[in-house]
C-alpha cells in the first residue's frame, strides 16, 4: 500500500468530501492562498476557489460561530482554528451555542459542523502554541472529539466527521503532520466513537491517543523484548468514549496505564480511570496509572518542554512500576 503523510491524508479527505458534496466548504485563518499554517489545506484554494476555501480575518469567535450559522442553514462547514490554544476566544460559541443548540431546540435542528484544529508541544513554541486542551471539549455534552494518531485514521475519521450531522472538534497534532503511514487509494470511512487496538498484548493495557500513542507503541515494542506484553489502545475518539474496548482489555490484562500530553489535573485520563473503576474495579490488580503533561504552562526551553510531556521512557517506567 502507498504511504502518505498525516497532513496529506487530511488534505485528501477534505478534497474528496468537497468534490462529493457541494455544501462542504472551508474557512479559517490563512487556509486559502497560504494553504494553512501547517499547510494542510494546500492546493484546495486553487482547486475549489474563493467561495469554498475562504480566508478569514483573525476572528476565532466569528469563524466558529459563523460555522454554526452556516451549518444550521444548509451547509456543511469545516472551519479551521490554527492552534487549539486560540479556541479560548471561540469557547462561548462552542460551549454555549454549538454544543447546546440542538438540545435547547428540542432536537429541531442539526449541526453538521467540523472544527479542525491542531495542538500539542514539540516545536518549542511556548505556552500559547503548544497546549493539549481536549479535556475542555470532552467536558461539554453535545460535541464529539476526535484525535487521530495515524494518516489512515486521520483520513477515515475526517471523512466521517464531515458527513456527520453533529458538531465535531477534530484535533490534529503538530508533530504528526509529517509522519507517514499506509493509506489506501480507494475510498474508506472510519466510525467515530470506536477505539482501535493498535497492538495486542496480555500483561498490561496502555491507552493513549494522538502523538503520545506513537510513543506508547515504541515503548511497547521495547518492553516486548524485555518480556512484557503490552496491549496498546488508540482511542481515536475521546467523545463518545469507547469504554467497552478499554474495559474488555483490562479484563484480560488487569492493569491499566493511560498516557496523554495534556495536563494531568482534570485531564481525560482521570475520566477514563474513573469509568474503569466503575465498570471493572474487580478486574484491576493494581491502581490505574497516569502518565501526563506537567501541570505548568508550556515552557520555551527545549529541555523543559521535553520534561513537560510524556515520552517513550516515562511510559516504559510507568508500565514497569505497575508490574513490579
Amino acid at each position: 500500500m502507498r504511504e502518505i503523510a498525516y497532513w496529506q491524508a487530511i488534505n485528501e479527505a477534505l478534497a474528496e468530501e468537497m468534490t462529493k458534496d457541494p455544501s462542504v466548504f472551508i474557512m479559517g485563518e490563512d487556509v486559502a492562498i497560504y494553504g494553512g499554517a501547517y499547510a494542510v489545506t494546500r492546493g484546495l484554494h486553487a482547486k475549489f476557489g474563493d467561495e469554498r476555501v475562504r480566508d478569514t480575518a483573525i476572528s476565532e469567535a466569528a469563524i466558529v460561530g459563523a460555522g454554526l450559522g452556516a451549518a444550521i442553514t444548509g451547509m456543511r462547514p469545516v472551519v479551521e482554528i490554527m492552534y487549539v490554544d486560540f479556541m479560548g476566544i471561540a469557547m462561548d460559541q462552542l460551549n454555549n451555542q454549538i454544543a447546546k443548540i440542538r438540545y435547547m431546540f428540542g432536537g429541531k435542528t442539526k449541526v453538521p459542523l467540523v472544527i479542525r484544529t491542531e495542538g500539542g508541544a514539540g516545536r518549542t513554541l511556548g505556552a500559547h502554541h503548544s497546549q493539549s486542551l481536549e479535556a475542555w471539549f470532552t467536558h461539554i455534552p453535545g460535541i464529539k472529539v476526535v484525535m487521530p494518531s495515524t494518516p489512515y485514521d486521520a483520513k477515515g475519521l475526517l471523512k466521517a466527521a464531515i458527513r456527520e450531522d453533529n458538531p465535531i472538534v477534530y484535533i490534529e497534532h503538530k508533530m504528526l503532520y509529517n509522519t507517514k503511514g499506509p493509506v489506501p487509494e480507494t475510498e474508506y470511512v472510519l466510525p467515530i466513537g470506536k477505539a482501535d487496538v493498535k497492538k495486542q498484548g496480555k500483561d498490561i493495557t496502555l491507552v493513549s491517543w494522538s502523538l503520545t500513542l506513537l510513543h506508547c507503541l515504541k515503548a511497547a515494542e521495547e518492553l516486548e523484548k524485555e518480556g512484557i506484553s503490552v496491549e496498546v489502545i488508540d482511542l481515536r475518539t475521546l467523545a463518545p468514549l469507547d469504554i467497552d474496548t478499554i474495559v474488555g482489555s483490562v479484563q484480560k490484562t488487569h492493569r491499566l496505564v493511560i498516557a496523554h500530553e495534556a495536563w494531568k489535573t482534570g485531564g481525560f485520563a482521570g475520566e477514563i480511570a474513573a469509568q474503569v473503576m466503575e465498570k471493572a474495579f474487580d478486574h484491576l490488580d493494581a491502581p490505574v496509572s497516569r502518565v501526563c503533561g506537567a501541570d505548568v504552562p508550556m515552557p520555551k526551553a527545549p529541555n523543559l518542554e521535553r520534561l513537560a510531556i510524556p515520552n517513550k521512557e516515562t511510559i516504559k517506567k510507568a508500565v514497569k512500576e505497575l508490574l513490579a
Binding site: 455544501s23 466548504f25 467561495e51 469554498r52 469567535a61 466569528a62 466558529v64 460561530g65 459563523a66 460555522g67 454554526l68 450559522g69 452556516a70 451549518a71 444550521i72 442553514t73 444548509g74 451547509m75 462547514p77 462561548d92 460559541q93 454555549n96 451555542q97 443548540i101 435547547m104 431546540f105 429541531k108 435542528t109
Partner: peptide, 30 residues
C-alpha cells in the same frame, strides 16, 4: 426558537446570535 419559521433562536448570552447570523448570511451567499 422555531427553526421552521426561520427563527434561529433567542439567546442566553448577550450577543450570542451575532456570529450565527454571520454564518446564516454566508450560507445564503454560498
Amino acid at each position: 426558537a422555531d427553526v421552521s419559521t426561520g427563527n434561529l433562536g433567542a439567546n442566553g448570552i448577550v450577543g450570542g446570535g451575532l456570529a450565527m447570523a454571520a454564518g446564516a448570511g454566508l450560507s445564503i451567499k454560498l
